[in-house]
C-alpha cells in the first residue's frame, strides 16, 4: 500500500468516526421529541409507570388527542396563530420594503433620522418596553384584547430590522437605472416601486418571511400581555394555560405539546431547505 492509499484510508476512517458521532448527537438532539411521540400514545398510568417503554402495558391509544384538542380549543388557537402570524408578516414586509425604498433613494434628513433611530432601536430588548406598552395601550388607550392590536405591535417591533435588510438589498442589488427607465416610460414612484423594485426583492422577502413568521408564531411574552381572553389565545399562550390546568394529566399534556409543535414541524418537513437558507442569510446579514 502506498502513501496516498494510506492517506485515503485514514480519511475514510475519520469520516466514519465523524458520521457515528453525528448520528449519536442527532439522536440526542431529537430524543426529547421522540419521548413525547412515544408517550403520546400511552395512557396516563403507563406513562407514569415507565416513560421509556415504546408501548405501554395497556396498549396503544389515540384517546389523548381528541381530549387535548377539545380542552385547549386547538382549532380556535390554531386559527388565531395563523391569522396573527400571516397578517403581521405581510404587513411587516410591505411597510418595511416601502420604507426601505424611500430611505435608500432620497437623502432627506427625515429619512436619515428614521433609519438611524431604527438601527439604534434594534438593541432594545422587549423587556424594557413591556411595562410602558401595557401602561399606554392597556391603561391609557385601552385597545388590549384585540387581534389587530397584537398584529400591529408585532409589525411595529419587526419593521426596524426588516427595513434595515430591505435597505441593504435595494442599495446593493437594484440599479437606479431601472427606476429611471421606468420613470421615462411614464411610471410614477408608486408604480415604479410595485412594478419594478418590489418583485426584484424576492430573496429578501423570503428571508424576512421565514425569520419573522417563526418569531411571531412562537412568541409568548407579547401575546400573553396583549391577549388575555381565552378565545383570542395563540398556541404558546394556550400551551402555557393548558399546562397550568392539566399538568397532572400527563397523557393530555403530551398530546397538547405534540399538537403545539406539529404545525411548524410539518411545514419544516417541506420547506426545510428554504428555512435553513433563510435563517442563515438573515443571521449573517443581521
Amino acid at each position: 500500500m502506498n502513501d496516498s492509499q494510506k492517506a485515503l484510508q485514514k480519511k475514510k476512517i475519520i469520516h466514519a468516526v465523524m458520521l457515528v458521532v453525528l448520528i449519536v448527537l442527532f439522536f440526542l438532539f431529537i430524543s426529547p421529541f421522540l419521548l413525547v411521540v412515544i408517550n403520546v400514545f400511552k395512557t396516563k398510568a403507563d406513562i407514569t409507570s415507565n416513560p421509556l417503554a415504546l408501548i405501554g402495558k395497556h396498549g396503544f391509544t389515540v384517546k389523548n388527542f381528541p381530549e387535548a384538542m377539545k380542552k385547549m380549543s386547538f382549532w380556535t388557537v390554531f386559527f388565531n396563530s395563523v391569522v396573527i402570524t400571516c397578517s403581521a408578516t405581510v404587513l411587516t414586509i410591505i411597510f418595511s420594503a416601502m420604507a426601505g425604498f424611500v430611505i435608500v433613494r432620497n437623502k432627506w434628513k427625515a429619512c436619515t433620522l428614521l433609519f438611524s433611530l431604527m438601527v439604534a432601536s434594534m438593541v432594545i430588548p422587549f423587556q424594557v418596553l413591556m411595562v410602558p406598552l401595557v401602561s399606554v395601550y392597556g391603561g391609557i388607550v385601552g385597545v388590549l384584547n384585540h387581534r389587530l392590536t397584537l398584529i400591529l405591535m408585532h409589525t411595529g417591533f419587526s419593521v426596524s430590522m426588516a427595513t434595515f435588510m430591505f435597505h441593504g438589498a435595494i442599495f446593493t442589488n437594484i440599479p437606479i437605472e431601472l427606476e429611471e427607465a421606468a420613470f421615462i416610460d411614464g411610471c410614477n414612484r408608486w408604480q415604479t416601486f410595485w412594478k419594478i423594485v418590489f418583485p426584484l426583492l424576492k430573496p429578501t422577502i423570503a428571508t424576512i418571511t421565514i425569520i419573522d413568521a417563526m418569531a411571531f408564531w412562537n412568541d409568548y411574552l407579547l401575546p400573553s400581555l396583549v391577549l388575555q381572553k381565552k378565545e383570542l389565545y395563540t398556541i404558546p399562550i394556550a400551551t402555557q394555560s393548558f399546562y397550568g390546568t392539566y399538568s397532572t394529566d400527563i397523557g393530555l399534556v403530551m398530546a397538547a405539546l405534540l399538537l403545539a409543535m406539529l404545525p411548524i414541524l410539518v411545514l419544516y418537513l417541506f420547506l426545510q431547505r428554504y428555512i435553513v437558507k433563510g435563517v442563515t442569510s438573515g443571521a449573517v446579514k443581521g
Binding site: 438532539f29 417563526m214 408564531w217 412562537n218 411548524i264 419544516y268 435563517v279
Partner: peptide
Amino acid sequence: FFVPNLIG
C-alpha cells in the same frame, strides 16, 4: 440540529 429553534 436546527429543529429546536423552530419551536417556542
